[in-house]
Every structure is written in structure tokens, then in C-alpha cells.
Amino acid sequence: MKDRERAAPKRVTMADVAERAGVSPTAVSLIMNRREGTRVSEDAARRIRAAADELGYRPNLTARALSTQKSHVLGFISDLVTTDRLASGLIRGASQEAKKHGHVLLIAETDGQSGAAEEAFSALTDRQVDGIIYAATRPQSLSIPVRATGGTPVVMLNAVSDDVAGAVIADEYAGAAAIVQLLLDAGHTSNVVILGRSLDQPDDEWLTFAVRRRLNGIWDTLHSAGVVPVAQIPCQPWSVNNGHRGVRDLLDNGIRPGALICLNDRLAFGAYRALTEAGIRPGGDVAVISFDDDDIAVYLDPPLTTAAIPFEAMGAQAVQLLLQRDRVHGQQLVDMPIRVRNSVTIPAQLDLRLTHANDDERSAR
């Protein structure tokens, strides 16, 4: 019976660490709480950290919160982000960046339900989080239940709001311009087709601010080069089946594309199938570019050239923005990396330039 009633191990305190390191508890507090500008010597700081590691010291977060008025917890409200295999990178990026700054992430999911956001904001502010990130799977404008925030700082992620000054989103315009310019530089200027949406298509629920910027980047770049698409194929939603159907109908109408600009990877997957069924080789007979960098894109034959949505980088930047003392207002745009693969035939001179650029990017990581 006594064995079953063994007392739990005693929690290691700052006093224990101070005794092991041969310093005062005050010095331990300064180092463990990461206070800036302390007079604790580097040698003493190293001894304190070593002693803390040896003893398995863990800070008392409740006591720290009372003394610093900071919980070191950030709230993350997800609008279906937790269930999306691509957009979940927003959470990974935010969580990793929060950890670097000594914070943890507390996640609340709305499941896309009306009214759930207000409940999530209330639940997080009741737990005195230091700030809240409100993230969406699909870029869109969201309203904030201001009274439920309790004055807690809020940053939008992959979304914007009239109620919040700070937002982190992908630079859709620049990403679209860059990948279309890659296509043009490679000499693919004839029989260009846009798959996904027509420029003169009436506004609807699918035309988010991100889609509009992506389209503008495509059109402005084509226009600057004097290239006019031979066809624009609306496809809502942007699915594999609709991509397949759109390209199949295009071919049935006697239009053979020389270059295909797909507005997302799922459309490109369907386009690949339709082209292959017609005996047309993607990357050989017709150049194909796309957006999103879905995990499957690299496994296509040939692998798909696509502009990536930088989800993890966006999540990290949202945390950085939230923790800034002098918070920057407005939209923070994150570059969309271009994944150059074999769906676009690249001239040797351009290929050499891109190889060096990719090497530089890998070295910077």
C-alpha cells in the first residue's frame, strides 16, 4: 500500500538551481525569465542553465504570469485550418516561431460555424493569452467580434479584416507575375490558355481578394509582353474534375494550347489527365504552370512548375508581428517561392540562372 502511495517527485525550484550553480535565487530568476540587460556574468549564466538542465527545472508559468503580466501563451483561432493538409502549415509555422520566443500556441477551431469565432475569442481572452492569430484556410475577409477580444492584440493570417490593422498574406500578385514571366522568358508565348477563371466573369463567392490579385498578376504580365490568351476557361470550384473537363472541352472545340496557366494545382492535375488522354505531352507539347505547390505536384509526370503558398513562413511572420512591441499595421506580404520543375521547357541560359538561384535559396535555409 505504501508503494502505491509514494509521493510525487518534488518540483525543482529556483532555490535548488541557485544552490547547484552557486549563485543567488535572484540571478537564477533573471536568467530563467530572460530578463534583458542583467548584470549576471556569462560564466554565471552558463552555470545556471547547466544546473537547470541537470535538475530538470521547469519555470512556474503561473508565478511568472503574475509577476510579468504575460502568460507566454498565444491564441490561434482556426477557420478550418486544422483540417486542411496544406493550410495546416500555418499552424506549424506559428507554433515553431512561438516556441523560439518562449511561447506556446493554444488552438481553437471554429469548424466554419457561424458564431463559433466569438466563442473562441472569448475562451482565449478568458485564459489571458498575450495575443490572438485568426487564420483562414481560404483567403477571405472576416469580421472580428471586437467586444470578445477584451483588448487583446489580434493579427489576421491568410485573411483580412476591417476590424484589425495587421494581416499576413501571400503576395499573390508578385507570385503570379513571377511564374508567368518564367513562362514567357522560356519562350512560351503562343496559344496561351488560362484555366480556372475568365477576366470578364462576373464577381461571385469564388472571387476572393487573393484570386483577384493572382489574376491581376497574370494579366498584367501577359499584357506587358503583348500576349493575349486564346482562351479563358471558368471552372468553379477549382477541382481535378473541373480541370479535366475544361481542357477536354477546349480540345474538343479544336483549340490546342501551347501554354496552360492553371489557377491552382488541382486544376493542373485534371489538365494533365485530359492532355495525356489526347496524346499531348505536358511539359513537352504544352507548357503548364500552376499555383499552390500541392504535395502531389512533384510526383506528376513531368513534375509540375508551380508558385508555392508559403504557409509556414506566413504562420511564423504572424507570430513575429503579434509579438512586436511597435506593431506594424497593414498587410504584410510574404513572397511565393517558384518551384521550377519539368512542366515548362527552359532554355539553357535561363536554366543556368534558375539553378544558381535555387542553390542560393537552399543555402539560405
Rank of each mutant, 00 (worst) to 15 (best):
R212Y: 04
I91E: 01
A63N: 08
G22S: 14
S88K: 02
R127Y: 05
G243F: 03
L251W: 01
A117E: 13
V227Y: 03
D285P: 02
V160E: 06
A274H: 01
D53S: 11
D171K: 12
P337V: 05
M336K: 04
L215M: 15
G315Q: 10
D200C: 08
L250E: 09
R11A: 14
D111Y: 02
V240M: 10
R266K: 08
E361N: 11
P202V: 07
D326P: 07
N242Y: 09
G187D: 02
L321D: 10
S24M: 04
V247K: 03
I309Q: 13
N216Q: 09
T208A: 03
P145R: 14
A167N: 05
S190E: 15
W206Y: 07
E277K: 10
W206K: 03
G196M: 10
A123V: 00
S198Q: 08
H188C: 10
V23F: 09
D171R: 09
V328A: 15
R47D: 02
I346C: 05
V298I: 13
P310C: 08
A123C: 05
P145I: 13
K70C: 08
N253Y: 05
S71C: 14
A178L: 08
T82R: 02
S290R: 11
A165V: 09
G102M: 02
D294L: 07
L74D: 02
L124N: 03
P202D: 10
P337M: 03
M336I: 04
E277A: 14
W238V: 01
D163M: 14
L333E: 14
L90S: 08
K10N: 04
T208Q: 04
L275M: 12
Y299I: 11
Q140W: 06
G315I: 02
K99I: 06
V334T: 12
A271L: 01
E54N: 08
P237M: 05
